[in-house]
Computed example of a mutant assay.
Amino acid sequence: MIEEILPPEVASAEAFEDDRDGRLFSEEEAAVAGAVPARRREFTTVRHCARAALGDLGIPAFPLPPGAQRAPRWPAGVVGSMTHCAGYRAAAVARTSRVHSVGIDAERDEPLPEGVLEMIGLPEERAMVDRLAARQPATSWDRLLFSCKEAVYKVFFPLARRMIGFDAVRVDIGGGGRFGARFLVPPPTAAGRAVHRVTGRWLGRDGLLLTAVALC
Rank of each mutant, 00 (worst) to 15 (best):
M1P: 00
P8S: 14
E9M: 12
S12T: 14
A13R: 07
D19P: 01
G22W: 10
R23Y: 01
F25P: 00
R40D: 04
R41P: 00
E42P: 01
T45G: 09
R47V: 05
C49G: 05
A50N: 10
R51V: 08
L54P: 00
D56I: 11
F62P: 00
P65H: 08
P66Q: 06
P66V: 05
R70I: 01
W74M: 04
P75H: 10
A76R: 15
G77C: 09
G77Y: 10
S81H: 09
M82I: 15
Y88S: 08
R89I: 03
A90L: 08
A91M: 13
T96K: 06
S97F: 01
S97V: 15
I104K: 01
A106Y: 07
E107V: 10
E118N: 01
M119K: 12
I120H: 02
I120V: 14
G121M: 04
L122M: 09
P123M: 07
E125G: 01
V129S: 05
A138R: 15
W141H: 02
A151M: 04
K154Q: 12
F156Q: 10
A160C: 02
M163R: 15
I164H: 14
F166Y: 15
D167M: 13
A168Q: 11
R170L: 12
V171M: 04
G175D: 14
G177M: 12
G177C: 08
A181Y: 14
L184D: 05
P187N: 08
P187M: 11
P187L: 11
T189Q: 15
G192S: 08
R193Q: 15
A194V: 02
R197S: 13
T199I: 06
L208M: 14
A212V: 15
